[in-house]
Design a protein around this nucleic acid. Structure first.
Lengths: 357, 357
DNA sequence: GGAATTATCCAAAGCGCCTTGGATGTTCGA
DNA sequence: TCGAACATCCAAGGCGCTTTGGATAATTCC
């Protein structure tokens, strides 16, 4: 498929400088904005570079400068056929905006947890990246120590609970958001509130659980373990959990759900039980603002704690690039406040049909 | 954050060969499996490399060999805040398996259509990739000609309709799958069948539309334009479309839906209308087998045409790497057959409540 | 006008790897 | 025992870029 035209396409410094009758040094300096070149030659060089569609060979540039101009995203998966959290794609879409703005590329990997360590060591030894984003931090997470040992700059999307170490992170206020949401349900008169959560070995889910419990306890309510479920963020998880809970003796009158996808399963279970969301049953979800699940509008479908994951991606990337540029900034942190948005899925408590029947 | 330990971590060929008392040539050859080195030294070298956690500097290697050892995925988006099709993440997760198996890295970009051309030209000029996967092909798609001109190896995930040119592609049988699904609905007695489709400027949606029409026409049915909707694959699209259609005078008794996400909206609209899926209304979806929407099990929720996007990713990547390795294979093509899977969302036609009332 | 700046530009080294074209030592057949 | 064939290893050049340390010409200052 490669043909003769290719050689025209891929011009290099040497050719460019020969065409211009200048040295490689001068051309390089002209293009990189060094002062030792006159404004007139700089213009001439830039024009020629543009016309020749010249871009420095990224590999050669990296070799010479020692900078990979690439950021790695290593997505942890349990197995190769594992669930891929839809949040990651949205986050990456955001981060990628920042990267292209600053001339960086994005390298993506999926790593099973068992070879996560070797993955990190490998990409560093290969000089593949200048830094990484750590996804899906766990309550305790060995990646912190590992990355510090390797000396690879990183930003965590989320936080690690069981550590006193410092590190760069960007996170939303999981705990207070879920506390606030729970409080809203309590204020509406709900007492039997179910939490349909993500895997609580992961920080975000654990913190949401804590926030949920905070609110219950502050209001003198006891939590019911059978109304607390924790699993991967799938529709099935939501459906099966809600179905089972609704059929039980102590059916909840309200659900607090950790993601939109899960809520779709919950919604389905509720309507299959012949109940109406926002009337018989209240639901609050956490809304990551995924682009294909639109929960906005004048009156959103779901009452929700909303925090844009895409924006988090943008900001995380900015933080990382800044960290790489100015190591003395370490550590940087940023807490994003979610918004509690009233939708049509919440309403005052009322005795449920099923219990009346 | 980088500290003294780093230098220990990042060993290079020179150091390694000095440690071993061998030349760089020999060490390089030993590690790359050349025959000019004795088995005993090879063992010795491999051991030392492993112990020193030596990995060749990817940038230097690329420069020397001319191979980037990287594949690019350029995801087209209308605007930076655009919907990111969930299918892409799953596809990429699959492709990534193949890449890491063969020592390749995956470079990801999101490109607005207006600067798609410059994106491709740029990554080629930069020598950033050895090939690319083309996502979301359109009915007519300028990327084909562009990539051929540039001479960059590529594989299209899907097909381009309006072209006679040859190119590498991997696709599912969109047209026949949707024809088959439509036929099933017709066989069940349905005559008013709605198609809730993706954007029909995209090939996959257009082909599904054609398949849908094929079946209608073969059975002497005329299509009703008001029962054919086409938009981005969001839940909202499904919900609003189905709500409107169900409320109209010629409400459909069956829906053919282009994705699981959209179907969730359709399902919601149906249950809000007080109708039961699989009884009052039949629904067939196309199921990309996304990991967080589980539509498997003994009796899946939705009757569906299923084709795993993740597997497509694996195979597309294999095809591309093979193409890069053996250019004479051009063009390669692969058609994946989707499976029609019976779920509980379809049933024989019966007069609808709404029309009876 | 001559020395000291300043403005421009260049030659060459080096980043870490692969690879060509020998060099050296070993083994084998005659 | 000697040359040929082979096995084993090495020195050095080159991939395309950045960057150091001048060189040359133009300008300024006394």
């Amino acid at each position: 498929m490669r043909n003769a035209e290719v050689s025209c396409q891929a011009m290099n410094l040497k050719q460019l400088s020969e065409n211009l009758g200048l040295s490689q040094t001068t051309v390089s300096r002209a293009l990189n904005g060094y002062p030792e070149v006159s404004e007139s030659t700089r213009k001439r060089v830039e024009l020629a570079a543009q016309q020749g569609n010249y871009r420095p060979n990224m590999r050669a540039m990296s070799l010479a400068t020692g900078k990979a101009m690439t950021i790695g995203h290593i997505i942890p998966v349990a197995t190769q056929s594992d669930v891929v959290n839809p949040v990651f794609a949205e986050f990456v879409a955001g981060a990628s905006q920042t990267y292209s703005q600053f001339g960086y590329e994005l390298m993506l990997r999926f790593a099973e947890s068992k070879d996560e360590e070797s993955t990190y060591r490998s990409i560093v030894a290969k000089h593949a990246v200048d830094g990484v984003i750590v996804h899906s931090p766990m309550r305790e997470d060995s990646r912190l120590a590992l990355l510090k040992e390797i000396g690879l700059p990183f930003v965590v999307h989320g936080r690690v609970c069981d550590t006193n170490e410092e590190y760069n992170w960007i996170d939303m206020n999981n705990r207070s958001a879920f506390k606030q949401a729970t409080q809203l349900l309590i204020d509406l008169g709900h007492k039997n509130i179910a939490l349909v959560n993500g895997q609580e070995s992961l920080s975000f889910a654990w913190l949401r659980r804590l926030g949920f419990l905070d609110a219950l306890h502050e209001n003198g309510l006891t939590h019911n373990p059978s109304l607390m479920a924790s699993d991967e963020l799938t529709e099935t998880h939501g459906y099966q959990t809600a179905t089972k809970m609704l059929a039980s003796d102590h059916a909840p009158s309200a659900f607090l759900v950790s993601s939109y996808v899960v809520a779709l399963g919950v919604r389905h279970a509720i309507s299959q039980a012949g109940l109406a969301i926002g009337k018989d049953i209240s639901v609050i979800i956490h809304d990551d603002a995924l682009s294909y699940f639109d929960n906005s509008g004048a009156v959103p479908q779901f009452t929700s704690t909303r925090s844009s994951v895409r924006e988090a991606g943008i900001l995380a990337a900015e933080m990382l690039l800044k960290q790489i540029d100015e190591p003395e900034l370490y550590p940087q942190t940023k807490l994003l406040k979610s918004h509690l948005i009233m939708g049509s899925s919440t309403g005052p408590y009322r005795a449920q049909l099923s219990t009346l029947v």
